[in-house]
Design a binder for these strands. Structure first.
Length: 494
RNA sequence: GCGGGUGUUGCUUAGUGGUAAAGCACUAGCCUUCCAAGCUAGCUACGCGGGUUCGAUCCCCGCCACCCGCUCCA
């Protein structure tokens, strides 16, 4: 099966078939940015649609949301991103290697071990200067105390809002979609009659100024997330965590990812983010390099951390104004004694009790998933001594659902095929082609992953039937034209 | 950010200090009644910018991008 053994092969396939292009290619490219081509955008949209259908549409306990990418700067203070979503890095003067300051080890006896997997440290400038690096050893060249002063490396993109320079305010592109959900928790609660346990789902772009990107679209600075924040009563969080773990894994399998290429990887306790009680990655084994497993999705138990933080953020508003809207000059207000009945708490009517719900968060990378589906679907097989390339997409993900051909370009076949095409395209994405040999047209659709090809032939003129050719088996069946639409809809599960 | 490598058409490759070849793909036409047939014609490239040179795709410098490794990785 899988013949894509190098990342280059995947990149080449993506470009050749119009799935993914380098961004700004005519200007020499822009690092780490990619564009989705005609087939790619259909595929990615289908992935997002499949996620939405599974997580929102098919469930009674999840509602959707589309929050703006810009949010109030205090959101990022409360969430911890403004303080902690930055690395303190230092550069070795001898070998120019940059290293996170909190990963540096002491030269003497290594007694004071570096904090492995520590969260990002706070970067207020005062603290940065306070770091004593004179005893630290460079992990690359071994030089001791040769480091530059620690520099904060900002991981959030900044921009200005407001046309006038004087009263413009620093804004951040969101580094995750989750906070838009927490910020709307109250709104959804007040307007939709949802009851805990329930979830709010969102698909959208996020931006992180990663230190390094690399590896095609696995880690890009602009990327699309599909996130669900599932609110539940404290004490039930473990069971919902398990529930979503299963749900999310099944989603990938149901859409055709091969089981042997998918796995869970539980985070070690010291690997957990500061807010998380538990976290597991859904990983896919991409076929390039050393066969490395790559994260597609993280499922975390975020506890009540975020809602509690936003209650603190809401109490910080005045201080923020007084500081001249400068996040670096303020500290988040302390938590109220009675935070459990704060503005973002939930009142359980049955139990007559107020509490801050716990949150289970499945957070999936749509770009990564799209690529995984693409790579996993790729196949080559021998047919009569020739190689047949095809993409075995699940019908729900296939960019084109059906292609319609006249067998030859005469005897009225094109006209009939056109009519069928015009009818079918109202229901799903179709493609019409009448050029060249029909075999070639079949193979071309194989490479686009089109599950069905409908061919109008001589017999159609006699008895109004057409052939439906299936991508995976290349087998054909005759279907009455009048039943074609329902036949395909059934097969496509539409 | 560091080290190494790469960059010729849509793709895969060839080649050269005198501006470039092939296959596939693509477009038009002919032919064609079920799995990449054939014939004819056509389109398309030396990543970008400097330098050396009479002349650079080739040599040199810088930049950009990608790949591998390191570092990093809510």
């Amino acid at each position: 099966m899988a013949k894509l053994t190098k990342l280059d092969d995947i990149v080449s396939l993506c470009k050749r078939r119009g799935f993914i292009f380098q961004s700004s290619e005519i200007y020499g490219g822009l690092a780490s940015c990619y564009d989705y081509g005609p087939l790619g955008v259909e595929l990615k949209n289908n992935v997002k649609r499949a996620w939405w259908k599974n997580v929102v549409q098919m469930r009674d306990d999840v509602v959707g949301l589309d929050a703006s990418i810009f949010m109030h700067p205090l959101i990022w203070k409360a969430s911890g991103h403004a303080d902690k979503f930055a690395d303190l890095v230092s550069e070795c003067k001898k070998c120019n290697t940059r290293t996170r300051v909190d990963h540096l080890k002491d030269s003497e006896n290594n007694a004071k071990k570096a904090e492995e997997h520590s969260e990002h440290v706070s970067v207020d400038p005062g603290q940065a200067k306070g770091y004593d690096l004179s005893h630290k050893v460079c992990p690359n060249c071994g030089a001791v105390g040769q480091f530059t002063a620690p520099m904060p490396f900002k991981l959030m993109f900044e921009t200005q809002m407001g046309a006038n320079a004087e009263d413009s305010m620093t804004m951040y592109l969101r580094p995750e979609t989750a906070q838009g959900i927490f910020a709307n928790f109250r709104n959804v609660l007040d307007t939709t009659r949802v009851k805990v346990p329930f979830g709010i789902a969102q698909v959208g772009k996020s931006f992180r100024n990663e230190v390094t990107t690399k590896a095609f679209i696995f880690r890009t600075r602009e990327f699309e997330q599909a996130e669900l924040e599932f609110f539940c009563e404290p004490g039930t969080d473990d069971q919902w965590y398990q529930h979503w773990k299963e749900q999310r894994c099944n989603w990938y399998l149901d859409l055709g990812l091969k089981k042997e290429n998918l796995r869970f990887r539980d985070h070690d306790p010291d690997e957990l983010a500061h807010y998380a009680k538990a976290c597991v990655d859904v990983e896919y084994r991409f076929p390039f390099g050393s066969g490395d497993w790559q994260e597609l999705e993280g499922i975390a138990n975020r506890t009540d951390y975020d809602l509690r933080q936003h209650q603190r953020g809401m109490r910080t508003l005045n201080k923020w104004y007084e500081s001249g809207r400068d996040l670096t000059k303020i500290k988040l207000a302390d938590e109220a004694e009675d935070y459990q009945s704060g503005p973002l708490s939930y009142f359980d009517e049955e139990k007559k009790a107020r509490y801050i719900p716990y949150v289970i968060e499945p957070s999936a990378g749509m770009d990564r998933s799209t690529l995984a589906f693409l790579v996993d679907a790729y196949d080559e097989e021998e047919v009569k001594g020739e190689t047949r390339n095809l993409l075995r997409f699940h019908p729900a993900l296939a960019p084109i659902k059906a292609a319609i051909f006249p067998l030859v370009k005469k005897e009225g076949m094109p006209e009939i095929a056109r009519r069928i095409y015009d009818d079918l395209k109202r229901r799903f994405n179709c493609f019409y082609d009448e050029k060249g040999a029909v075999g070639r047209r079949y193979r071309r659709q194989d490479e686009a992953g089109t599950p069905f090809c409908v061919t109008v032939d001589g017999q159609t003129l006699q008895d109004q039937t057409v052939t439906v050719r299936e991508r995976d088996s290349m087998g054909q069946v005759r279907i009455a034209t009048s039943q074609l639409r329902s036949y395909l809809c059934d097969k496509l599960d539409l």
